[in-house]
Design a protein around this nucleic acid. Structure first.
Lengths: 170, 170
DNA sequence: AAGAACGTTTAGTTATTTTTAAACGTATTG
DNA sequence: CAATACGTTTAAAAATAACTAAACGTTCTT
């Protein structure tokens, strides 16, 4: 391998590692980013073994990671006739990934958070009702007020995530 | 503890746990969400020991977690005269937290990702230049094209994060 | 100045997550 | 139908992250 080739191999590997660190920092695990980066730097589809070899990890890890990526539409399964292997290629349109994959899961998390808010809010209202006029009542009513604000913000965020203008910007 | 009180204690604890799970799912760790939820349901500032007792964890964990939360402006240190303890209260304006804390760190991550993109892009361009006309050259030029698109998207995202309209919506 | 009350750091432990090797199931080939 | 080539599952190992107890350094109190 000559100098130029080595330089490219180095750059490529650093990019893959950076991808891994990035997804890691979002709590998605290292494999996800590494696999995606690997496929992103391939202009032709790759099979599981290619990926596993390329990243020096087990095929099992790749199998799991690839499935996750597929769920987010970050990666696409390619059928090559005459070959039994599953091939994968990276979705290069980040807008698709963001909209269909990541923002979706964000919206879901936001939703369960909202449910928890509603639960505790109704509970604190009940508590407040049971302490009408006394000092503890003030305590509960204060908290109820906060929770109401929180729910308002929750709605605002939800709206933003579904805002067509914002979506268009991606 | 009577029935109503027990119901409130339960709801409260479930809320705290849900907070922990939420931050966990974002890769921020469980403590962060639990501490924040605890303070959020207190209408008066709490010291480290209060929090540690309330969550049944060590003071060391709380000390670390609280510092993290402070960095995001999600929690504020309160000085109560005549008391040497540090008290903390939750920032109840989620807009502040999002803008000053979370989006900031998101922007930073986006930025380092952009740097990596630029690095690998310049490297692939060099590689392409070294293979002018041959088949490998096409390979490199294909990848270069992708990376250019990626950088474009990166810029778009960056713009969105700094978009005043979006900021106003929070 | 000694003692007590803090918050922080750190070294070690525990818990969790990630990764792997091997077993497995299925489809394909000879 | 036996052998091979796959992708997936799973149980265990390895790596990582979270958490704690104890030691520490400060600041306050007496």
């Amino acid at each position: 391998m000559n100098n130029a080739e080595q330089a490219w191999a180095d750059a490529r590997w650093r990019f893959i590692e950076a991808g891994g660190r990035t997804t890691q920092s979002f709590g998605l695990g290292r494999m996800i980013g590494q696999i995606y980066a690997f496929l992103y730097l391939s202009d032709e589809p790759r099979c599981l073994d290619d990926i596993a070899d390329g990243l020096a990890v087990s095929k099992a890890s790749v199998s799991i990671g690839v499935r996750q990526l597929e769920g987010w539409l970050a990666v696409r399964k390619i059928w090559i006739k005459g070959d039994r292997k599953d091939f994968y290629e990276a979705e290069t349109d980040f807008g698709v990934i963001l909209r269909s994959g990541l923002l979706d899961s964000l919206a879901k998390k936001l939703n369960t958070a909202g449910e928890q808010l509603a639960l505790v809010e109704s509970s604190v209202k009940e508590a407040a009702a049971g302490h009408n006029g006394d000092a503890d009542g003030d305590h509960f009513r204060n908290i109820a007020k906060r929770l109401k604000e929180a729910r308002k913000f929750h709605g605002k965020l939800n709206g933003l995530l579904n805002n067509p203008i914002v979506k268009r910007l991606l």
